[in-house]
Design a binder for these strands. Structure first.
Length: 546
RNA sequence: GAGGGCGUAGCUCAGCCUGGUAGAGCAGCGGCCUUUUAAGCCGUAGGUCCAGGGUUCGAAUCCCUGCGCCCUCACCA
């Protein structure tokens, strides 16, 4: 006789094996064996009780369900008063509204012949009463077999208890979905940060603040889209799988396509495709979608993140600065409106109160540099000396560095921090040497026509007057490639490649343009007062559990 | 990458400093209860103290290593 050894893993506890010669686990004994947690076993048994009542514990289609909020608003004080006064008179016509609600059982109080539940849906909570007198027998038995965190459906009259709680006084209950997992603690909720991210499906219903943040996120993104449309930008979708990963300086994720046997990259930016569309004659385009960068994780970086990029033909950096400022103010106004506020658009972010209503501040790179370091950025010797002092690790290389790179290092050390975090601020006029893909300022070729928006110390959105001279572009690409130290950047060379097609596109002729990129996750962090990007991404990347 | 913190029942947390048989609340189970709402009362059960190693007569506790998460800094851009 052949003996198969089958490994199988109960949801908890050790894996064990059994062979075909062993008796099969019986179906009505717990099919997951002794590894099954008692709490789950108990819930399975309650589920079987529901089946024995002739009901489907996982629910069936139900039409005409009212939200908890809608059911509450149906409450009719006059009808309720009338019922309380005359409900026992023969022939009395009950005018209290009838409703069906569905939700997850958050609280359960079994008084014997009267069972109270508080259920929750995305609109809020409502209390349900299931009394032995007023429910049909099956429904009452179902109520008895209901566990915390089950999904239940109740139909009945909307009334108010003598303690003033709006309640659906049920005459019928139906199962809406069995929960075999026990719920988090009912007062403290789900606290563990890791579990909240890994099991967002629990976090979302157990912690209403979580749901509120993601509803706001959805509203913000929708509002941003409508704003762009109102400005006559066309929404487009460009490749996320690219044969070259261009448009930004970041390490891409690499994958392989079997059918063509080629290497593919997840995009690090949509930029080069959106510009091709300008060449194609689309004057104003935008895309809101995911970019992927194969770099570290921290409070402001998730490997996949959502960016808005927009390009405006015949515009320049000022065009898109105005766009961003109006767009952010509009989104902030939306959030404030959702919070019931009015007047000046001020939203909290941690300890800061960020004012979005005034014109955003501006500061030039050069002025911040000088304020930070006490000498002008054109003073290369002093810059080198300062960098050696503050960054001893870099000291040996400093003399060989491009003077503008030295300036840039110093600026990032101290310059950015001079910007008031509570005032949205554009830093303008970056050195051209540190902005290779940007056009130079018409009146000063040493400076780039670029502005970066900073809010709360975070870089939110860069703005550029785009490069559209194919020869300049090609030279810049070549310089970028040449700059790679072959040994140190061996890996980088596998994905940094000249984008010949993009140069070819520019040769067809691209109108002058302003372009911007706005980090949507960071914007949502600001507007919803969340300190980490993981609290505004539904399913942030986590290391696998096993 | 460096430093710090955390990991104990399904959940929320004590206990660790100062080593001596594992604790509470909620949830669960049995019982009572038809206006409760963190329901209440009586009873009861529940543990790989993240994993591995070490010290010790004895380790949740002290030491080392590893894993996971969080924080700060650095790197990257």
């Amino acid at each position: 006789m052949t003996t198969w050894s089958v490994e199988y893993r109960p949801c908890r506890g050790r894996a064990r094996s059994f062979s075909m010669t062993d008796p099969l686990p019986s179906a009505d004994a717990t099919p997951y064996g002794e590894g099954l947690h008692k709490l789950e076993a108990q819930r399975r048994s309650n589920r079987d009780t529901v089946r024995a009542l002739g009901l489907e514990p996982y629910g069936v289609r139900v039409d005409g369900i009212a939200s908890c909020a809608a059911a509450r608003s149906l409450f009719d004080d006059a009808a309720n008063t009338e019922f309380n006064a005359r409900g026992k008179e023969p022939g009395f016509a009950d005018r209290r509204p009838v409703v069906t609600v569905a939700g997850r059982v958050m609280l359960l109080r079994d008084n014997g012949k009267l069972i109270w539940m508080t259920i929750r849906d995305e609109t809020g909570d409502i209390q349900i009463a299931a009394s032995q007198r007023d429910c049909d027998a099956t429904s009452f038995a179902l109520a008895k077999a209901t566990d915390l965190s089950d999904i239940t459906i109740a139909s009945g009259r909307v009334m108010k208890t003598k303690t003033g709680e709006i309640t659906v006084w049920a005459n019928s209950l139906r199962p809406g979905g069995k929960a075999l997992s026990p719920p988090p603690e009912k007062h403290a909720g789900l606290q563990d940060v890791e579990t909240r991210y890994r099991q967002r499906y629990v976090d979302l219903w157990a912690n209403p603040e979580t749901l509120a943040v993601f509803r706001l996120r959805s509203g913000i993104v929708s509002r941003v889209r409508r704003f762009m449309e109102s400005r006559a930008y066309l929404e487009v979708e460009t490749p996320m799988l690219q044969t070259l990963a261009g448009g930004a300086a970041a390490r891409p994720f690499v994958t392989h396509m079997n059918a063509l046997d080629i290497k593919l990259f997840l995009r690090i930016a949509p930029e080069l495709y959106l510009k091709r569309l300008l060449v194609g004659g689309l004057p104003k385009v935008f895309e809101i979608n995911r970019n992927f960068r194969n770099e570290g994780l921290d409070k402001q970086h998730n490997p996949e993140f959502t960016m808005l990029e927009a390009y405006h033909a015949f515009g320049n950096v000022e065009t898109v600065m105005e766009l961003t400022e109006s767009l952010i103010r509009d989104a902030a106004e939306f959030v404030l409106g959702a919070a019931g506020g009015a007047g000046e658009i001020v939203l909290p972010f941690g300890d800061l109160s960020i004012n979005y209503s005034r014109p955003f501040a501006r500061a030039t790179f050069a002025s911040l540099f000088e304020r930070a370091w006490g000498f002008p950025m054109t003073d290369a010797p002093r810059a080198r000396e300062s960098l050696k002092r503050v960054h001893p690790k870099l000291a040996p290389q400093v003399d060989a560095m491009d003077p503008w790179l030295v300036v840039n290092e110093l600026f990032e050390q101290k310059g950015e921090s001079l910007v008031d975090p509570a005032t949205p601020t554009f830093i303008t006029d970056y050195p051209a040497a540190v902005s290779p893909l940007t056009r130079a300022k018409p009146d000063n070729p040493a400076l780039a026509d670029r502005a970066d928006l900073f809010i709360a110390g975070m870089e939110i959105a860069p703005h550029y007057t785009e490069l559209n001279d194919p020869e300049v572009q090609e030279t810049r690409f070549r310089e970028q490639l040449k700059g790679l130290d072959a040994e140190k950047h061996a890996e980088e060379q596998t994905y940094r490649t000249m984008d010949h097609d993009f140069v070819r596109a520019l040769k067809v002729g691209m109108p002058p343009a302003g372009g911007m990129g706005l980090g949507i996750d960071r914007l949502v962090m600001l507007l919803t007062n969340q300190r980490t990007i993981r609290d505004v991404v539904l399913f942030p990347l986590m290391r696998p559990e096993e």
